[in-house]
């Protein structure tokens, strides 16, 4: 009896993927570039790393698939951070200057307060939209009922019957 060829096919190695090597290389290149830029702009990186902490926290705690929370927090957090970032860029661009910006309480309150406002916006706006939608639905119901009354006036109550 001849041997089953299937056994040999199962044992054969999967075909090599030519893109795998190129992908790894590009990743290494990107990471190297990021590290290089990070080292080049280290004060900015250090400043942003601490200034955008609320955004990072929002990203971590947002379990929804849409991930609107960190965008919402991040937008305003970045807006609160941007004046101090510009100061860093237009002034002395050193680690000390960056730390100095970060250790100023007023600066922190501005940056993190802006992030808090973003959080507030994210919490408050959905109920407001809900109330608006509810109001809109009530109005639609009233319009539909008025249309129905008009139909009954023209076509009689039998228009409301489902059959016949």
């Amino acid at each position: 009896m001849a041997k089953k060829p299937a056994a040999r096919r199962t044992a054969a190695p999967p075909p090599a993927r030519p893109q795998a090597k190129g992908g790894t290389m590009s990743r290494i290149l990107v990471v190297s570039l990021v590290i290089f830029i990070g080292l080049m702009f280290l004060p900015t990186v250090v400043f942003l790393l601490f200034a955008l902490l609320p955004t990072a926290a929002a990203y971590v705690v947002d379990r929804s698939s849409e991930k609107y929370e960190w965008i919402c927090v991040g937008g305003l957090n970045f807006a609160g951070t941007s004046p101090f970032l510009l100061n860093l860029w237009t002034g002395r661009h050193t680690i000390e200057a960056a730390v100095s910006q970060l250790t100023d309480v007023f600066n922190l309150v501005a940056m993190y307060g802006a992030a808090g406002l973003g959080w507030m916006l994210f919490i408050v706006l959905p109920p407001v939209v809900g109330v608006f939608m509810q109001f809109s639905a009530q109005r639609r119901i009233a319009t539909l009922k008025a249309t129905q009354i008009q139909l009954v006036q023209v076509w009689g109550p039998e228009v409301a019957k489902l059959k016949g």
């Binding site: 965008i71 305003l76 959905p126 809900g130």
Partner: peptide, 19 residues
């Protein structure tokens, strides 16, 4: 659910715009 989604979208858009 729709109000939640629309509210969150609106908040995100507003936040980005302000930034």
């Amino acid at each position: 659910a729709q109000a939640q989604r629309v509210g969150q979208q609106t908040a995100a858009i507003m936040s980005v715009m302000i930034g």
